[in-house]
Each structure stands twice: as C-alpha cells, then as structure tokens.
Amino acid sequence: MKKTVFFGALAVAGMAAGVAAAGTLDDVKARGKLNCGVSTGLVGFAAPDANGNWEGFDVGVCRAVAAAVLGDPTAVEFVPTTGKTRFTALASGEVDMLARNTTWTFTRDVDLKFEFVGINYYDGQGFMAPKSLGVTSAKELDGATICIQTGTTTELNLADFFRANNMSYEPVPIETNAEAQQQYLAGACDVLTTDASGLAATRASFENPQDHIILPEIISKEPLGPLVRHGDQQWGDLVRWTLNALISAEELGITSANIDELAKGTKNPEINRILGTEGDLGGMLGLDKQWAYRAIKAGGNYGELFEKNIGENTPIGLARGLNAQWKDGGLIYSPPFR
C-alpha cells in the first residue's frame, strides 16, 4: 500500500543520494537545516522545554553552527540520540554533527572514524556521598557500596581507581541516571559515582542538597566535545572553528551584548578578523564574512553559554574550574584567528 510507495521512493532517493554524496556543508545548505545529534535529555546540556524548544550547553553549540552556516540559529533539527545509537546516527549520515557530551577517546577518534573538533567541556568522574557518612576524601571509601551506571567508562575507571589505591568496594549496578538518584536517596548505596557535572546536577535536584557532598577527587579525564564524520575536512574545520570562535570571543571580550558595537570595527585586528571586518576567514571555510558574528550572536560566547546553562547562577551551579579560559587558569584555549 502506502508503504510500497515509500519503499520505491526511498530506493530511488537512496540511489540518487548515494551517487551525489556531496560535502556535508552543501547538504546542509541544500536542506536548509542542520541535523544535530543531541542527548535524549541531560541536565544543563540538552533538554526540551515545555514548548519543545531544545536548550542547553551542547544545544548552544548546534545553534552556533546553524547560525554560522545558515544564518538562523533556529534552523536546527535536533535528533535525540542515546548512548547506544549516537555513533551510528553520525556514521550513517542521519546527523551532520554530534554535540552530545561525548568523551574524546582514542578508539572513538581513530577506530570509529570520527573527528573530534575540540573540547567544550572538561569533565571527570567524581563521587557524591551523604554528609552523615563522614567521609571527606575518596581515599576513605574502602569497603563502600557504590551506585554505578553499567556499561560506561565510569565502571572501568572506578575499578582502576580502587585497585590502584588498594581498596575494595561493592558495586550496585544501575541502568539509568534517574534510577541512580532514587537508589542513592533510598540508601541502597553509600556513594554515587558519575561525571562531576552530572553529580552537581543530581545534587541540585535533591530536596536537601546541603546534606550531600561531592568529594574533591576526580578520578578520570572526560574531555567532552562535538564530533563529525571522518573524511569531510571542510565540514570538520567549520564546526571546529565555530567552536573556536565562541571560545576566542570570550577571551577577547566579544559578548552578545557588545558584538554589534564591535562589528563596526575595532583597533584589535583579531576581533576584526573574527567578526569579518578585516580579511576573509569565512571565505576560506566556504562561508561569508559574517559567519562568526552570527555564531556568537546566536547564544553568546563560550562563557555566556556556560553561565546561562550550567554556570554558578543556574540550579546546577558548576564552577568554571578546568573550563575557565587559559588566562584564568583553565584549559579552554583556542588557536589564534589569523
């Protein structure tokens, strides 16, 4: 019936698409929409509001890229992906890029044939415990029962950490973050472990957050960043330098508030180059001169995105920490625009 028509059209469309697999940039422009893979829901990073608009830190990256390429930060089709479907979605071309708090690892970069274009959040695995437990350091957790999500790198990191410190623990395997929160609150385990940003968000949702502490030890490196498919360098460059533009904008003091003022021309040549009043960096990416202007204007610079979605004034309340600009002692650093 109707399906047959679909199949026929699909087969034809599929062959046509297979032959004319042009660059991602051309595809996106032709489609008029950026397909951006995000999480199905992660506090502060990606979640839909009551009207179905996606919001969050990762979402901000998608919107910046859409603004740079298409001139419209709302021209994004957010494709919710789970931990299991995200890589196939990217590899098969269902999404043009992933901004789904994905850890940059060797195998994902090399073996799975993806290209991480940068790091937008430096995370690491931490521990949370009730204050009543009386621990102040993860080194005192010998013999503790620990709630942990199965099948993630956190499980392996935990085993490594306890072995290295010659301690024992009892894992309570758990499938989802929500379940972890419930189990922890119900006292099924002494300690909850996951990425530090997730711990902060979880703690913020508790009725009495002050009764719980996040232990100071961070036991793993989890650099999270957007990624694209291997092999389309132009598109990879574009996403990479959009992210860099957001980071440089913060460093150079370009904000969504003063950007219109600065776009008229300044004495700082790098600002001028980013905003397109000097040189033609956009042309080299296959875009116009205003691309970075639009990307920054979409949701603000890196710092603004951070403050709005996960910063200290939000319920999640993450400090900049490692994610401060390099000038302020953090690791956020963009190569120069020249």
Partner: peptide, 26 residues
C-alpha cells in the same frame, strides 16, 4: 522505542527530568 532515541512518553519523562525545572521528579 525510547531506547532508540524516539521520545514516546517514557522517553519524554527522561527528557523532562533533564530540564533544570523538573530535575529530580520521578
């Protein structure tokens, strides 16, 4: 289908709990 990233009611429950307003409601 919520496991493959389609947002049916259960998938949406997860997405809703991921907003700062409703994080922690179960």
């Amino acid at each position: 289908v919520s496991i493959i990233g389609l947002l049916d009611m259960l998938g949406l429950a997860n997405a809703i709990r991921a907003t700062t307003a409703w994080n922690g409601i179960i």
